[in-house]
């Protein structure tokens, strides 16, 4: 059973490495943002695997947080790329 988890870990890490290559190389920012988002998901997998390996439930919060952050981060990047601004100014003031 342990071998399975270790194998899964290695696969995830390899995918992170591949994504990092895209992050570094990525011809334009959009490629990098997608790579970063995917890395976030891979990290979630990794943390989940670790909590099984270490037999602890303390890291489950991190999984939730990572999911939220990854989402917010991707949204922010996308908005930045599209509008050049993240928080739009309230013009009614």
């Amino acid at each position: 059973m342990t071998y399975f988890f270790w194998g899964a870990t290695i696969v995830v890490v390899l995918s992170i490495v591949a994504l990092l290559y895209r992050l570094v190389k990525g011809p334009n920012p959009s490629d990098r943002v997608v790579a970063l988002d995917a890395i976030g998901v891979a990290l979630i997998c990794l943390v989940g695997l670790f909590s099984v390996v270490f037999d602890t439930s303390f890291f489950l919060e991190i999984i939730l947080l990572l999911a939220i952050l990854s989402f917010i981060g991707t949204i922010a990047f996308s908005k930045f790329i599209e509008k050049g601004d993240i928080i739009t100014r309230d013009n009614s003031r």
Binding site: V47, F50, F54, T56, F59, I62
Partner: peptide, 11 residues
């Protein structure tokens, strides 16, 4: 931090 068992720090 996760690997070294520090969930609060990781958060």
């Amino acid at each position: 931090f996760v690997v070294f068992n520090a969930p609060d720090l990781a958060l």
